[in-house]
Amino acid sequence: MKKFIYIFGIILLNLFAFGAIFKVMHWPGAGILITVGLGLFALIFLPLAFFNNYRGEGKKQFSLHLSGFICALICISGALFKVQHWPGSGIMLIIGVPLPFLYFLPVYLYHHNKAKEKSVINFLGVMFLMLYISVFSAFLSLSVGKEILNSMVTMYEDFSKTNELYTLKNNMDYLKLESSLPLEKKQKVEKIKTKTIELEKTIESIKIDLIKGTDGINSPAIKGNKIEIGKFSAREESSFTTNFMHGADGASGMAVELKTKIVDYREFLLSILKDNQAKYQNINKLLNTSDITDSNIGEAQKIPWEVQFFQNGTYAIVILTNLECLETRIKMSEAELLSSFK
């Protein structure tokens, strides 16, 4: 029996550890490994081990064993519910996090005080384990579940819809203008179209490269030249993302390159609009690339345009969403310009 319990416990812990690794790597099967590992650990291994230990020790410490078992059971099932996003994990967390300190620890200290043969090493071991658990539960209050990033995906999808809307509108305007404008102006409009498409392609290729760089070359999020953001799994990647946008020295990445292209595009649009003061101002506003003074920081600190849009250390999905926002601005500038021809 004893041998079985030892081996069983070690196997279950390994199932859990590999489930955790699978989960982090987004490999399939993580859920089953974690559920089986933790479920059997809590429901079979723990009762067997505590009972066997209680019988073997031959001391009357029933309440100590019971408290240890109950706390471990609740903590482990709470963790299982939390990791698997099952309903009820919230309430289990509220009970499970303070329970070891409010129930097990006092019972343990009481028994330790009464015990004839005290083992200080065991006592300190228990105390330091408890310390580790409490500090890390406090630490984890800092982080939020990854599902918050899923709402970023929704935002990305929404913004893409706005961009599609503008594409549709601008294309309609192009068609109208082509049929109504004199030849010389038509050429200008043609040029705007090519320039805009060029800039949009740059942004699109930045997005695709970012997805391929974080999610792998065969990322399911990329179908041909189209992005299916819902299938992008490396949403929280941040180190490749920052390096990709800002380069190793902070000034050689895609962000700077993109800024130059936008400045070029803006100057081109402005050159067409020299006589139209109102539209000139509007384009300047939409495609503003100057540093922004952030009043929140207190001291008048200038934040470069490329950091405003692509913060250092942020997640890949955030950069993708902000690129989408940038595209909206470009499309709106294009629409502005087209309306000036009417």
């Binding site: 319990i5 070690i10 291994f45 073997g56 071991g125 580790y132 658990i133 984890l140 800092l142």
Partner: peptide, 30 residues
């Protein structure tokens, strides 16, 4: 001859160690 308390302690300790690390890895910062 029987399952030692130390072993249970070790198992639960490693469980928490792995748990906090997986939560740290799959959660994102505020």
């Amino acid at each position: 001859t029987y399952v030692k308390g130390g072993f249970i302690f070790l198992c639960i300790g490693i469980f928490f160690f792995n748990l906090f690390n997986i939560l740290l890895a799959i959660n994102v910062s505020k």
